[in-house]
Design a protein around this nucleic acid. Structure first.
Lengths: 152, 152
DNA sequence: CTAAGATATATGCAAATGCATATATCCCAA
DNA sequence: TTGGGATATATGCATTTGCATATATCTTAG
C-alpha cells in the first residue's frame, strides 16, 4: 500500500478508535435516564433544526437505516417527545419536530452529556488542537462524494 | 457555555458527523459480500493481533456489548472464520484468533474497503491534514479517563 | 390525462442487540 | 482450605435493527 493510502487508512482507523472509545465512556457514565443515546441523537438533531424536517432529512444525520429510524420516531411520538405531522405540500412526506416535552428531555439529558464530552475533550486536547480536530472533521464530512471508480 | 467547553462540544460533534457520514458511505458502497461491516470490524481487529486474544480484550476495541460480541463470535466460529479455544492459564477465559478462512475473508473484504477509505480521505484531506487528524484522534483515544467529578 | 417510473415512508419478519443475570473460575484473606 | 467477592464469558428474554418489499404520492413523457 502506497504511503499516502496507508496514511489515509491509519487516520481513518484512528478516528474510528477515538469514536468507539469515547462513545463507550459516554454511554457508561452519563445519566441517560429516560432516553437512550440513540434516541438522544434524534432529539438533539431535531433540536438543532429551525423548523420541522422530513424523516429522510433526519435520516441523513442519524446513522440508522430508514426503517429503523421510522420506528424510533414512532416510539418517540408515542412517548410524546416528537410531533409527526403531514406535509401539506407533499403527501408522501412527514414533518418532524420536537414537542415541548421532547425539548425538555433533550435539554435535561444534554446538559450532563455536554459536560462529560467537554471534560474528556479538554483532558486530551488544548484549544488549538480542538479547533484543528473540529475543522478537519468538518472538512471530512463535507467533502462531496468523489466520483466513482476504484482507481486509487 | 464557556468558550472552551463550547469548542470541546463542537469538536466532538464534528467528529461524530464525520464518522456517521463516512460510515454510511462505506456501508453503501463497499462489497461486504460475506461479512457485515461489524463482523469485518471483529475480523480486522483479530487480524491485527499477534496471537490469540480474550473476548474482553476484543470487546475493548469493538463497540458492542459483551453479550452481543460473545454471540457474534459464536456465529463467526460457526462459520469457520474464528477459532475459540480454552485458555490453559485461566479457565474462565477464551482465546480467540482467526482461522485461515477467516484471515482470507478479512483480506478479501479489506482490500476494497481500504481503497474506499483511502479514496474518501484523500479526496478531503492532504497529507499534513491526515497526519494531524490521525494524531489528534490517537491522542483523544489514548487519554486516560479524567478523574470523576462533574466539575466542568 | 395517463401510465411508467421516481420518491418518501411504513411493514413483515428473521436476525442482532442490550440488559439483567447465570455460570464457571480465579484470588485472597482468615 | 475455605468462604466471600472479583472476574470472564454465556444465556434468557424483550426490544431494536436491517433487509426486502409494500404502500402512497409525486412527476413526467407522450
Amino acid at each position: 500500500m502506497p504511503g499516502r493510502s496507508r496514511l489515509a487508512n491509519d487516520a481513518w482507523e484512528a478516528l474510528l478508535t477515538a469514536h468507539a472509545e469515547i462513545m463507550r465512556r459516554l454511554a457508561a457514565e452519563d445519566v441517560w435516564g429516560e432516553v437512550s443515546m440513540r434516541e438522544y441523537d434524534v432529539l438533539y438533531t431535531l433540536s438543532k433544526c429551525r423548523g420541522p424536517i422530513r424523516l429522510g432529512e433526519l435520516n441523513r444525520r442519524v446513522l440508522l437505516s430508514q426503517p429503523a429510524l421510522s420506528r424510533m420516531v414512532d416510539r418517540l411520538v408515542e412517548r410524546g417527545l416528537v410531533r409527526r405531522e403531514a406535509d401539506s405540500s407533499d403527501g408522501r412526506s412527514v414533518r418532524l419536530s420536537l414537542t415541548e416535552e421532547g425539548r425538555a428531555q433533550q435539554r435535561q439529558a444534554g446538559r450532563p452529556h455536554a459536560l462529560g464530552v467537554a471534560r474528556r475533550m479538554k483532558a486530551a486536547l488544548d484549544d488549538d488542537e480542538m479547533v484543528a480536530l473540529r475543522d478537519l472533521c468538518r472538512k471530512l464530512a463535507t467533502e462531496r462524494e468523489p466520483a466513482g471508480g476504484v482507481r486509487a
